[in-house]
Design a protein around this nucleic acid. Structure first.
Lengths: 338, 338
DNA sequence: CGAGATTGTCGAAGCGCTTCGACGACACCC
DNA sequence: GGGTGTCGTCGAAGCGCTTCGACAATCTCG
């Protein structure tokens, strides 16, 4: 492996000049630059990451802390990860993948040993135990999610409260008055994962504002969980004409179940799903949905980290506005029937 | 951030002694060691990763190159990734996540700049364009998959040829003679992703050996693709009594379709799936399946990388023996009907 | 036209660690 | 009792890079 000294010698300049060609931090004459670049290309020189990190205290690496257990929404996680890695590369950074399992210790390990310049964390809980540690790190963090106490920490996410409002307003606008919510699994609520809480809060607020009759229900994974949830909703909210489903995994069994019970979508029951676009479109019924813009959120998280790194101002809370796309799972209830 | 010098001063020893306490490469008296460790704990010392990498030419980081596009089997990829990260941590290594999109350039970038000690690559194609580059790197690589020319490169995977044989033998043992294969999407075959090829090869060999009547068919994703594939199989192989499905994504629509057509599983048609255990068990019919042991493969890949790194011998080709678990999707055809 | 600014380059220091050789202190053995 | 080892520790060199200050050369403008 050639070093910067080899390049310098080959180009007939000093090592520092090579460094300045690489970093652009000082003006270098066009011809010197050309000679240096030629030497770099010819020798196939790549600066040693460790040496660079040591000398400059920058690693050009981001940590991504992902929940790699399988009880969560795998495809969405994957979309976040893809977006983060891609965006990071566009800023000339790489991504170190950590599991949430390592908890606080993992964060501290990579931060204290200066392996990364910044951290991006997913699957944030309401009172996330990692928060104090995050605040103590010298590296900035960006959260995908919004804990209760997020003062001074950059947070990025879909505005789930607004999303719930949007879903209800859409349904109310179509004349629905009795609406059920199928939420994430109880485990997710138990962890107080922030998107679940925020969606629920938005749902309840909008429900009150719009003077709707609503019932909310978490939902265990699997067909049995869906069956139970649906049965409960039917009992507690007779005459229910619409469902908001904030639980990607239940969509498929739910549709199966409804069909088996002879309840047509949207003729007998309308559905608004909150899930990635592609999921909504790959169901037996083309679902009206509010997209979870994993790609945008991931990209924004990286951009925010970059701004933080070069000391620019950032808005500490960035909640992306939800968008609802009409497809074929909501019907208009005629005014006479409302 | 305290440095090794701070620790040395606090413990009243030289920096090299601290280093030897940390690495264990030279004998240190118990009492000195205790003093040093106390100082480390008190100061909260973590060695600087870059400095370490520079001085020792070891990064304690593995690259994981994953296909982060979404056309492939997301959950399986995720399982590999989880296994790799977890296993890496157990060897005190971290994982740098690269996308396959970056291709050869990405590998060379992280390898030449000494960001990683070894590489683990997924989604290997038959004549993978990255192979020459991989051979040239000074860091060792471990492939999850098996390219045509794998001489001198460590490869780890499920033995897909054997898996196909196992599936056919199971069905033949139950009296099935006419068996269809629903394979991955044409795109996967086009890329000549090695697991698809190898499974197909094993399927054809076993089919001949067992003197079965078989037809094989790739399958476009989505319900339409499945419908087309099934129709073709029915046409080309009238009287087909069993299906081998080597395409996780089609399982659900396939079962829907069969049910809709009034074909019961396993009464009218038997199925052996090749997919992760949890997928097989989360279907409407509990599927007899051959597990894709992503966890084992990922772990083995990391172990192999570690052996390579400390110069121990490795078997360059490790194909994990497939296991078939009987559930409820295969019926025995009575001898009278064979 | 000269003081001052700008441009382009160099040399040297130093980032924080590992590792090699050296060395004193002992123990061991014929 | 002097050679031979082993043990435990230290000092110094050096890994490959960035960055700071210095300086010569060139430009700028009142």
């Amino acid at each position: 492996m050639p070093t910067i000294n080899d390049v310098a010698r080959a180009a007939g300049v000093s090592p520092s000049t090579v460094s300045y060609v690489l970093s652009g931090r000082r003006p270098i004459s066009a011809e010197t630059r050309a000679r240096v670049q030629a030497a770099i290309a010819e020798l196939g020189f790549h600066p040693h990451a460790g040496a660079r990190a040591l000398a400059s205290s920058k690693t050009n690496v981001l940590a991504l802390v992902a929940p790699l257990r399988l009880d969560v929404n795998v495809p969405v996680i994957m979309q976040f990860a893809t977006a983060v890695v891609t965006a990071a590369r566009s800023f000339n950074h790489d991504v170190l993948l950590l599991t949430k399992d390592e908890g606080t210790a993992g964060l501290e390990r990579v931060a204290h040993s200066t392996m990364v310049d910044a951290l991006i964390l997913m699957d944030i809980e309401r009172d996330d135990v990692r928060l104090p540690a995050i605040r103590r790190l010298k590296q900035p963090s960006v959260l995908i999610g919004m804990p209760a106490d997020h003062a001074g920490i950059a947070c990025v996410d879909l505005d789930f409260e607004a999303a719930a409002g949007l879903a209800l307003r859409h349904l109310a606008g179509h004349g629905h008055r009795r609406i059920g919510l199928i939420g994430p699994s109880p485990a997710v609520y138990r962890r107080q994962t922030t998107y679940a809480d925020r969606f629920l809060a938005g749902f309840l607020t909008a429900s009150a504002e719009l003077e709707l009759r609503t019932v909310t229900h978490p939902c265990e994974p699997g067909a049995d969980g869906v069956r139970a949830a649906l049965a409960d909703l039917d009992t507690e909210l007779p005459g229910m004409t619409a469902l908001v489903v904030h639980n990607e995994e239940t969509l498929r069994p739910l549709l199966d179940l409804l069909r088996a019970a002879g309840r047509r979508v949207p003729e007998d029951i309308s559905i608004v799903a909150v899930c990635p676009r592609d999921v909504a479109m790959s169901m037996p019924v083309n679902l009206t949905s509010i997209d979870i813009p994993a790609h945008d959120v991931g990209t924004l998280a990286v951009e925010t980290a970059m701004r933080l790194l070069d000391g620019r101002r950032v808005e500490f809370t960035r909640l992306l506005e939800p968008g609802l796309v009409e497809r074929s799972s909501c019907r208009e209830i005629p005014p006479s029937h409302r």
